[in-house]
Design a protein around this nucleic acid. Structure first.
Lengths: 348, 348
DNA sequence: CTGTTAGCGCCTTCAC
DNA sequence: GTGAAGGCGCTAACAG
């Protein structure tokens, strides 16, 4: 570079502030600026401070594309999801964004129709053009073999959120759904309920299937039985909970407690109870799973399980950013016992 | 570059397929490949075809960082939102992603706490590092002067979704909330309702304030009056609808119809009615706004207004990508008349 | 501990 | 219509 034109030259409309401007302002080399930016250890305090000042004065922001092109990281994390139970996905996004912001990363979201034909090519497109540093897989995609194997081929790190199938196949974050469902069932049992009905998750949703396992296991462990008609299929929607609830509440011998495997369905059950004029929780105990605000507004005292959804995504994102060995992280859930469970008729 | 090392050289683990590989494979210059990729007109059919073949064979994906660095576009659109009524934001995301995918763009999401202190710097960070090609502002941020002026300083194109304040300040997409609320009010009026109560949007939500305007305007245009206590404040949540509903339904002279300015609040009103043992729609007509699936599951025949949320975001994104002059686009809404409005007592 | 020199992969300008 | 240089802003080797 010759001397007559420095970065000051304002010949066209000023472009952006670059690392070169910062270096000049701080009176150091661009490499020193780069070192400070990347928090490399071997930098003298004097230079670090000078650079930090220059950055602040100039309002400098490193160009992510240039970093990605020159370096190994894109500073981009992808969140891939399919069927937005919008509440759940929102929570995941919040958690992922929080972790990203903390580390100077950004979140790119991508929706995939897992029933569609070109799942793999969508992944290839996104990952290939974006050079994502990592991918978050949310249910039910956390169990999709095509996506995982594509990611493995591409050698992109990914973390599975609340997976069920293929345990240990990749790093994952979740809660112990089975244990939670068992605890909920024991809780009902201890309050004297024996005629407990269960509204199951949709069959495609593998992670949640563990809730059913937990319920059945807990019942048999206590020596209880699930009466005919007491095991209903659900679809995780309020409408499906409503139909299941109506079916259960019109049985000749109706249950004294209904355990819906998510709160949206619990909402439906409660609506069915209102419609049928059944007193809650006096004449029927309803419990759910997932702690949705809507279900709680219907019945402020609904007993349910709170999953730390945002925290799961935060943790998963951190695992992606920080790297490290593959781990299976099981986060704590909370059994939120409010008072929707009244004493059942069989209390000794 | 000397001759002994071409791009074939596989000395380290193979990197990515680059434009150079494609050019070599197709037997053309890299510039020709670039022309085909960017759909520039002046390319012979033969070359175009050769390049397209090579791209397909090699499974080539252009590196977005390199394009952004060399060219003027980053192929990244930002969606900025604050308080996720998760359903609404989800819809927006879907629409924005659809438009992005169609055009080879990607969507980066960023949440901002508009009550927080550093709104401007969050914008600067995101936009400055990412070099976004455009920004989508969703309510209530569509009316945030700090964000808009920051974006204007940065000279980043942005589109406002459902704005209210500062009309014409930037391109925007929305519906005519005021007109929709008027039509809804006329509908109630025509069914014979005169004692109509309204549950207003939160005062911060400027776009939705037009719904209140529309209601009041329609009432006075018909020569009706809003009785004392019939105008309730709401917060767009189910819980706030529940309290407002309880307040209205315990009035000595209660309304014959309640118009909730969104469906979440209509849900609350319907719950209040169930709890009070009031027959819907026989003894009370409830209408809403926004067509939420949850409200509809509570009352399958709820009359409401359907806003084309996803389409709004799709349109806004397209405006960003395609450029063109600033426009204010008003999309069609639908008054979804099911049958939650029973004849009121004053029908002539 | 610090600075210099090459590129990363693509698009832009300008010759041909 | 096509191709050859140059550089976007940054980081990765090196050298000092």
């Amino acid at each position: 570079m010759n001397d007559e034109t420095g970065p000051e030259r304002p010949d066209r409309a000023e472009r952006h502030v670059t690392i070169r401007h910062v270096a000049q302002r701080a009176g150091v080399s661009i490499k020193s600026v780069s070192r400070v930016l990347n928090k490399e250890p071997a930098v003298s305090a004097a230079i670090r401070e000078a650079v930090e000042h220059a950055v602040a004065d100039l309002n400098y922001r490193p160009n992510i594309s240039a970093r990605a092109l020159a370096g190994a990281r894109s500073y981009l994390i992808g969140l891939i999801y399919d069927n937005p139970s919008s509440n759940y996905v929102s929570e995941l996004q919040i958690g992922a964004m929080t972790a990203c912001k903390r580390a100077g990363y950004h979140l790119v979201i991508e929706q995939i129709d897992s029933a569609g034909p070109n799942v793999r090519s969508v992944i290839r497109d996104a990952v290939g053009t974006l050079r994502l540093d990592g991918v978050l897989l949310s249910p039910p995609l956390s169990d999709d073999d095509r996506i995982m194997s594509e990611l493995e081929t591409l050698a992109i790190p990914y973390v599975r959120i609340a997976p069920y199938l293929y345990p240990g196949r990749a790093p994952s974050v979740g809660i112990d759904d089975r244990l939670a469902a068992m605890q909920m069932t024991f809780h009902l049992w201890e309050q004297g309920h024996r005629d407990i009905a269960f509204i199951a998750p949709p069959s495609g949703h593998a992670a949640a299937a563990r809730r059913r396992d937990g319920f059945l296991h807990a019942m048999s462990e206590r020596g209880g039985t699930v009466k005919p008609g007491f095991m209903q299929e659900g679809a995780f929607t309020t409408v499906s909970g409503l139909s299941a609830g109506q079916a259960l509440l019109t049985l000749r011998d109706r249950p004294t407690a209904i355990f819906a495997s998510n709160d949206d369905m619990a909402t439906g059950v409660m609506i069915a109870a209102y419609q049928a004029g059944i007193d809650l929780p006096g004449a029927l105990s309803v419990v759910g799973f997932d702690d949705s605000p809507i279900a709680r507004s219907l019945h402020p005292l609904l007993t349910t399980v709170r999953q730390p959804t945002a925290e799961m995504a935060d943790t998963a994102t951190r695992m992606l950013i920080e790297g490290g060995p593959a781990r299976t992280v099981s986060l704590d859930f909370e059994l939120v016992i409010r008072s929707s469970v009244a004493p059942g008729p069989y209390l000794p």
